[in-house]
């Protein structure tokens, strides 16, 4: 567990964490709504509602020049690393104004200019790419960091071992953040993992392994701070496992027969946004009115993104051949 002796966060950081989580939730709910209204072509989007504390706790303390590699469930990470909600939503709607001009869609959201090196449609495939960014940072001699998000499912891919091993052997500035939301599509990690926790594997690489409550943003934040310092100072990677939960299914069309309504209700009791908002009011860091205001601003951002996306033009089929080669 993270070192609890760390000094409390500045109030503006606490409010920023709450706001960040709200922005992700509002964005994901808007995506879900678009999907229900059949305005999103393609595969049902992989929503991160429920997991916002991980995105906020990690991404909001990254520098603009840091890198981040994410997964098929990567909207929240991308938004909080600095991508624009409108261009993201336009990409989800396969519009010309999207980041990828409609070529990518939900699983290929990226903006290298803000350090978002890409989501991925292949489970575990982002990990080697993150390690490559780490090699590049070391090669160029900067103090940047690359964060590699992955899930409990990806921890069973060979790329996990190759990537953590290489990053550790070279002391690369990579922070591995596992969002363990229990289910690899439908399959419970308890049925497929050799160890009860993903973080148990850190011992095999002789690197710090830190378990955090993925529904509690300050714990995620503190663990990340320590891991980033370690990475920037040349001591190598850390494996953080955030125990979290996705409220929706694997995709928005997954009706979750593999888990109970009671389990879902129980996780919602520890909802990161509700609980942290309550905590900030209790601490006197925010008033109820300020919380409502942050929530309204998040909803407005998501609505503006939807409006922009829906009103944007489709890509021109005459230009479908663009971008195969440079």
């Amino acid at each position: 567990m993270p070192d609890m002796t760390v000094p409390p966060l500045p109030p503006e950081t606490m409010r920023a964490l709450l706001q960040g989580m709200m922005r992700v939730r509002a964005f994901e709910e808007a995506v879900h709504d678009l999907y229900q209204r059949k305005l999103l072509p393609g595969m049902s989007p992989h929503l991160s509602a429920g997991q916002e504390a991980v995105a906020a706790g990690v991404c909001l303390q990254l520098r603009p020049d840091d890198y981040m590699v994410t997964t098929h469930r990567g909207h929240g990470h991308s938004l909080l690393k600095g991508m624009d909600a409108q261009r993201m939503m336009a990409e989800l709607c396969s519009k010309e104004t999207g980041y990828c001009h409609g070529r990518g869609g939900t699983m290929h959201i990226a903006s290298p200019e803000v350090g978002c090196l890409g989501a991925n449609g292949i489970v575990g495939a982002g990990l080697p790419i993150a390690v490559g960014a780490g090699l590049s940072i070391q090669y160029r001699g900067t103090d940047q960091v690359c964060v590699a998000f992955f899930g409990d499912g990806a921890s069973n891919q060979g790329t996990f071992h190759e990537s953590v091993n290489l990053a550790t052997a070279r002391k690369l500035p990579v922070v591995f953040v596992c969002e363990n939301n229990i289910y690899a599509l439908s399959t419970n990690f308890a049925r497929t993992g050799a160890t009860p926790n993903v973080v148990d594997r850190a011992r095999g690489y002789d690197i710090p392994g830190v378990t955090v409550d993925g529904m509690a943003v300050e714990g995620v934040y503190a663990a990340t701070t320590t891991a980033l310092e370690r990475a920037r100072s040349g001591q190598g990677p850390t494996l953080i496992e955030a125990k979290t939960y996705r409220y929706y299914g694997h995709g928005a069309s997954d009706h979750r027969p593999y888990r109970t309504k009671e389990e879902e209700a129980q996780w919602r009791c520890s909802d990161a946004i509700q609980c942290y908002g309550d905590l900030l009011i209790e601490r006197g860091v925010a008033t109820a009115a300020e919380r409502d205001d942050l929530s309204a601003r998040a909803a407005a951002e998501a609505q503006a993104a939807v409006d922009f996306a829906v009103s944007s033009p489709d890509p021109d089929p005459a230009r479908v051949g663009d971008y195969v080669f440079a």
């Binding site: 290298p112 080697p128 790419i129 993150a130 490559g132 960014a133 590049s136 090669y139």
Partner: peptide, 24 residues
């Protein structure tokens, strides 16, 4: 750079390096 026998990490690593400004 000598690498471990990890072809996915080697080849994927080139992509991460490319996206961050190098020509591996």
């Amino acid at each position: 750079q000598d690498m471990p026998i990890s072809e996915s990490a080697i080849v994927g690593g080139t992509l991460g390096a490319v996206l961050t400004g190098l020509r591996p």
